[in-house]
Amino acid sequence: MPKLPILSGAEIIRMLERLGFEQVRQRGSHVVLRRGDVGCVVPLHKAVKTGTLAGLLRQAGVTIDELLAAH
């Protein structure tokens, strides 16, 4: 399993959209994405911390390898 990179919120959203997620709504600096009945919340920060990214991927049901392949 590769090490988690430090990515911006916008980069994470683009990668998840390539994996089939769609933006449902945004409130402030948080964007809610959904694919079927699975959803996740992405903070629109310049650099999302690795722990936050790990939790976000767990919430979305996406592996690190899948995310990096969509880069």
Rank of each mutant, 00 (worst) to 15 (best):
M1C: 15
M1E: 14
M1L: 13
K3V: 11
K3T: 12
L4V: 04
S8N: 08
A10G: 11
E11D: 12
R14G: 05
R14W: 00
M15A: 14
M15E: 00
L16G: 06
G20L: 06
E22S: 14
Q23F: 00
V24P: 07
V24E: 15
V24Q: 15
V24N: 07
R25W: 01
Q26R: 14
Q26E: 08
R27T: 11
G28F: 06
S29W: 03
H30K: 11
H30S: 10
V31N: 05
R34A: 07
R34V: 08
R35I: 01
R35W: 08
G36E: 05
D37G: 11
D37W: 05
V38N: 05
V38T: 13
C40W: 04
V41M: 04
V41E: 01
L44S: 04
L44I: 10
L44T: 09
K46Y: 01
A47T: 09
A47K: 14
A47D: 13
V48K: 07
V48S: 02
K49H: 12
K49N: 12
T50R: 15
T50G: 02
G51K: 11
G51H: 12
L53E: 03
A54I: 05
A54Y: 08
G55E: 05
L56G: 07
R58G: 12
Q59L: 02
Q59H: 07
G61D: 09
G61Y: 02
V62Y: 02
V62K: 04
E66R: 08
L67W: 04
L67E: 04
L68N: 01
A69Q: 11
A69L: 07
